[in-house]
Amino acid sequence: MTDPQLWISAAELGCFFGLLALSYYVVLAGTGFFNFAVGPYAMVGGLSAAWLVLEHGFELWLAVAIAVVATMALAAVTELAVVRPVQRRSGRSELPALVAVTAVLFAIEQLAGVIFGYTTLPGQELLNIQPITFGTSVILPSDLLLGIVTIVVFGGMALWVRLSRTGRLLRAVGDSRDAAALLGLPVNRIRLVAFVLSGLLAAVAGLLFAPKAGVSSTSGLDWALSGFLALVVGGTATVWAPLIGGLILGALQVFIPFYFGGPSLSYLLLVLAIVFFAFRPQGIFARRVRV
């Protein structure tokens, strides 16, 4: 574990997983609901930008803007057209919403395949500088950008949750929707903000990570699982917990296959998931439970 290049890869994966987990976290805090569609959101963010540039010759920054807005719109549609009506009908039962969000995940994947094609497209480099080399290790501009943006995003989220009214109300709404509605809080508006913000975060994650290994319409499912695991490992005690979870998962994803061979990773992830879900579903950093 002394090769710095491996650590750079681990940090890069960790930042990506952390951003995905944060995208989950926002919706979870506001709705008490895991939105598996954040993986496909990230895929749409990365893939649509690459597709606009490569296939239609769009200006890079215009393509990025369109991709981000499209992903946010997708998240808003998920909430308004699917999750909200299904939850309203099913009441306290979780299963219909779970099935609905699975259908959304699958539909976005298929839609992306039809629109953007089924091939893997290379992600677009957003930062045009020379790679930084020190010794035998190289930090690519995309790594650098991902790291910086991750820190800025998490810092911004921490401030938003603490300082803005919507941010502070987010948790109140997620804790008890009925109580929040009784108190006259704008539950529906806060939920919508949470979904749109989640779409924004996922789009950023997808855009920044796509240069690493490219992005295809089927990337979304794996990303959804990774983000979910990162959130479960990290916990929800603070805004920063998803990042810690992401970094741990990133390190495992890099070092386990390196030392134990490729297939060991999927076995380890299964064991990790079962152990965490069964024994510490609240994650490493848990919020103190009120009685």
Binding site: F34, F36, E94, L95, L98, T102, L221, L225, F228, L229, V232, S266, Y267, L269, L270, A273, I274, F277, A278, P281
Partner: peptide, 21 residues
């Protein structure tokens, strides 16, 4: 048995990981 305490989203995630593994 391994997932007996899990339901909903957690069960979906573990069984997905099981399929992949």
């Amino acid at each position: 048995l391994a997932t007996r305490r899990l339901s909903g989203f957690y069960l979906v995630a573990v069984t997905l990981l099981f399929s992949e593994a």
